[in-house]
Structure formats: C-alpha cells, structure tokens
Design a protein around this nucleic acid. Structure first.
Lengths: 226, 226
DNA sequence: ACCTGAACACCGTTCAAGT
DNA sequence: ACCTGAACACCGTTCAAGT
C-alpha cells in the first residue's frame, strides 16, 4: 500500500515511507560498512532522521534484522528444481547455502534468532523442496522433517564457521598458528601430527557440496532401512 | 605458577592472581546471570576490582571468551573411545555435541571467533578420534579432514539453531505461530501444509544422533567409492 | 607491578514534548 | 500521525595518574 505523495498542509521532509526505504538504507549501510555497523543510530543517520523516529516503524533491533533477512531472501532468485527427488533436495539445499554464503551476515541473524519464525512464505519453497523430495523417496512426514533439519544444521554450521574463519589471516596472522597443527605431540594425537601443516590447506577447501551429498544419501538410506 | 601469599609491605586487596580467579568468576557470572551478561565491567564488579584493572590480565573481551571456552573444555570429561572406527567417530562427535549442548553459550563463542584457533591441545582428542576413525576406514588424509569438517558443521549448526530456538516459547508465545505451518497455502507448499501444526512437534525432537549416524555413514560410503 | 577513576566513543530504548 | 532531543542505563577500551 504505497503512500500518497500529496502533502496535506506540510511540505517538510517526506516521511520515511515505512519499511521499504528503511530496508534499502539498511542494506546499503551493511554492504558499505559491514554488518557490525548496522545500528539503530547509524541507520537513522543514513536516513537523515532522528534515531528515535525509527521506533515508529520498527519494534526494536531484532525486528529490523528479521525484516532485513526476509527482504534479502525475497530478492533471491529461485533456481529450477529437478524432478528427481534426491537431486531436488540437493539443489534446494545448495540454493539455501549459496544465498547465505553470498551475504554472510545473514547467517548472523540466524544465530540471533530462531530460524523458523523468521522465514516468510517466499523462503519456504526451499523447505518444501526438501520435504517433498524426502517424501517421494519414501520418508514419513516425521522423517522428512528430520531430513530437512539435518540439512539445515549442516548448512548453517558451514556458513557460520566459514564466515568467522575468513579474514582472520588478513589482520591477525598470529592466529594462523592455530589453524596448522605443526608442532603437535605425535604420541598423543598421531594422525593430526601427521597431517600437520597441511591442515590449513585442507580446511580451506570447499567441501560443502561433497558433504551435502554424503549427508543426503546417508539420510535417505537411513529412512529406507527404518 | 601460584602466587606467594606473602604481602611484602602491603596488606590491601590481594591481587587477582591472573587467569584462574578471573575465569572462575566469569563462569560463575555466566551460570548465574546468563551469557549475555558477561561483560568486562560486570566481571570486574564480580571480582571487586575496577573495570580497567582487567586489562592487565586480558588483552580484550575476545581473549576472555577464548580463555573461558578452553577452561570449560579442559574440565569436560573424556569418554572411552570404541575400537571400531565408525563407532569411534560417532562417540567423539557425540562428546563434542554434548559438551556444547551442556553449556550452550560456549557455542556463541564459536561464532564470535573461528573455531580451530581457539582449541587448545586438550580438546584435540576429539578431532584426532574422528580423523583416526576415518583413516582406519580407508580415507585419505584429505578425506579424513573433510569428514571431520562435515561433522563439525553439522554439530555446530545443531547447537546454534537449538540454542536460539529454546526459550522463545517462554517469553514470546507470539512467535510460536512461525514454528507451526498451520495456515499455509496448500497449492504452493503442499507438503508443508500437510504437515501443518505437526511441524512444531517434529522440530522439537532430538534428531542429532540419527542425523549424525546418517552423515557418518554417508561420508564413509562416499570416501569408499571415490 | 598492580590498580585506579575519568574519559572517549559508542550502544538500544524510553519519554515527554513538539508540529 | 509523525518526528524530535534529552535522558537512562549501559557497553569496550584508553590513558594519565597513583601506590
């Protein structure tokens, strides 16, 4: 419901037509200055209004985050879904992953809040795709929900761990020590000691797709034998 | 290296013998008031010292978090590890999971920081157990690292999602609406609509062990066929 | 060495007041 | 209805100063 531009009596600063302007400004701020700079006060400054004014459009900061996440998901394209149920599950999971990986701060929101409550209907196609694939492969409704949840855990975990591992090398090379198991006690942790400095390289590889397929195959096999 | 109690000239407040007292106070504060109340200023008050004094023992807040996490892990018991490699992987992963689940705020630290750099050697037995099990089942070193990472993602994701879903029902029953897919459009998301209100129940179940086994079996099978 | 208060540069949020 | 500044109750961190 767009606002009428007609100023009935007043010609001052146009009102902050609710959510849309706020969300685009928030998105701009995050993209420019980073996720940790998204604050009520800064966002108000970005909009050229007082900080307290924002509270006429937003319940609180959490509200802003949820709104922004849904706004982002709404803009995310929806890939074609394969007919094969197993491939459909993988494609939907990959779409979730890629959407989050492209905007890592979105994953932060997922930790600030429970996840299910903040997805609006435009994001549910991913859930539907996974559940439908699982059902077609013989899962019960309970099993299908379990399949989705396992995939979701794996995906969120990958995003969060990766998001917080990136950039450490840039400003804090001291911590690179932890990432390589160079000087480990070979008698206590022989396999890690053997891997040694290679750990950093191996841990930097993108193993999400590989692990996802293994997970999906494992979940479907488990459901089939139950 | 414990401090001599002998006050050479002064009998004022005993010094904050570095880390140990700080960490026990921090742990007490977190257990009593919750993770979000752990702040430099409050911790100083808990210790009965000035806030700035803490900076003689701590680099910064992140340092405190890392120290506290390692302190917690050090105190965590180490379960017996099965001889069977597959069972060993599952047991080690379950131990990681249970340790984090028992103190959910620890999972928060994992998102604040990359994880590998903050584990000290006393926690590496879990990594070693997973890697050794994978190696015994024929994985290459690279595959074994991949097995660990996939399990880690799944575990961290489960902890984080669960930690942030708990308690929502308590103070915010309004958001329970999101957790049930009651009034969904059956033509657009038929499977979710069919599950409907059952989603909340199904999502509340503990499916970590089930999903973990599926993941491990999937990973080992994948490595075997590569 | 160890500790301090004051200060800086921020937060989210509320409230009474303005148009 | 929409917006405001002032204020409240906090943060992490730095710095010059005290013993």
């Amino acid at each position: 419901m767009p606002r009428q531009p007609a100023p009935h009596g007043r010609t001052g600063r146009p009102p902050v037509t609710s959510r849309t302007q706020i969300l685009t400004a928030a998105r701009r701020l995050v993209d420019r200055d980073g996720w940790e700079k998204l604050t009520i006060r800064r966002l108000a400054a970005e909009l050229g209004i007082g900080a307290t004014t924002l509270y006429h459009h937003l319940q609180n900061k959490e509200d802003l985050l949820v709104l922004l996440l849904n706004h982002y998901i709404d803009q995310t394209g929806r890939p074609p879904l394969p007919d094969d149920p197993r491939e459909r599950i993988v494609a939907a999971a990959t779409a979730m992953h890629d959407a989050l990986a492209a905007w890592p701060w979105a994953a932060e929101v997922l930790t600030v809040d429970g996840f299910v409550g903040l997805l609006d209907e435009s994001a549910l196609w991913m859930v539907e795709a996974v559940v439908s694939g699982a059902r077609e492969r013989g899962c019960t409704p309970a099993q299908a929900v379990g399949v989705f949840r396992s995939i979701w855990y794996y995906t969120v975990g990958e995003i969060l761990v990766r998001a917080h591992s990136v950039g450490l090398g840039a400003d804090e090379p001291a911590r690179t020590r932890g990432t390589s198991f160079g000087g480990l006690d070979a008698s206590r942790v022989p396999h890690l000691a053997a891997i040694g400095d290679q750990w950093a390289d191996l841990a930097a590889r993108d193993t999400y797709p590989r692990g996802l397929c293994a997970l999906v195959d494992g979940l479907l096999a488990d459901a089939a034998t139950a």
